[in-house]
């Protein structure tokens, strides 16, 4: 036994999921609109932020953040961390269902670069069958770099509706871009004519922790 960075239930799963992920992340970094073909009217997408997930404090990069902490300002207003979101209204509104809502949610996330092709060590995966819909579950862990602010400002609604000036960022003050770590779970099911449909897409965002969890040699 021991730590293994990649797990695939069988060869078919390996081929399907590595193809899926490499194409997905290429489009996620390039043009998210091109991903919408994978989502249908019952597809669900939501994000959650775990700002207190453990990570190694990197003293060489902390100077760019206030207080040395990671700025999650682009994510928090949409975060469906259900340990913290209790109102029914918020719980429902923070799941995007169907292409239109999902595309809108994608555009409220910062633009990114995932170095999957040049540095696959940054990622680990578990891929296995989801027998109920003859589908597969793809779980990927890794990190990305934020390269630009979101297409649409996720905090725009809050600024209009919330109490003026109180806990909001000052106008035009954008959250600092930085590296983040993430975990993302896809349930992918077969669609018509050999296509694939994402039935469920759960994205978890946390402070940047690098790749050591799945690449360190176990200590004796």
């Amino acid at each position: 036994t021991g730590s293994t960075s990649m797990f695939f239930q069988d060869e078919e799963i390996r081929n399907m999921s590595t193809n899926f992920i490499s194409n997905y992340l290429k489009l996620w970094d390039g043009n998210r609109g091109d991903l919408m073909i994978l989502y249908q009217s019952e597809s669900q997408f939501s994000i959650q932020v775990d700002s207190s997930h453990p990570y190694l404090l990197d003293t060489t990069t902390t100077t760019s953040y206030s207080n040395g902490g990671t700025d999650f300002g682009n994510y928090l207003s949409n975060s469906r961390n259900l340990t913290r979101v209790s109102s029914i209204k918020s719980r429902i509104s923070r799941v995007a269902i169907g292409q239109e809502q999902i595309f809108k949610a994608f555009n409220q996330l910062p633009k990114t670069r995932h170095d999957l092709m040049t540095n696959p060590d940054l990622f680990s995966m578990e891929c296995f069958r989801f027998p109920l819909l003859n589908g597969i579950m793809i779980v990927i862990h890794g990190s990305f770099e934020e390269t630009a602010q979101p297409e649409t400002d996720p905090n725009a609604n809050n600024a209009q509706n919330g109490p003026r000036g109180r806990f909001n960022h000052p106008k035009h003050k954008k959250p600092a871009l930085s590296k983040k770590s993430f975990d993302r779970t896809f349930v992918v099911i077969p669609g018509p004519n050999g296509s694939m449909i994402v039935a469920s897409d759960l994205l978890s965002i946390r402070p940047h922790a690098g790749k050591d969890a799945w690449n360190t040699v176990a200590k004796v």
Partner: peptide, 23 residues
């Protein structure tokens, strides 16, 4: 310790898919 979780009920399956962030 449970830090965060999110879940989707998948239509037509009777199951939740749950993603937990834990320490």
């Amino acid at each position: 310790q449970l830090n965060s979780y999110d879940c989707h009920l998948i239509p037509g399956t009777g199951v939740f898919v749950i993603n937990l962030s834990v320490k």
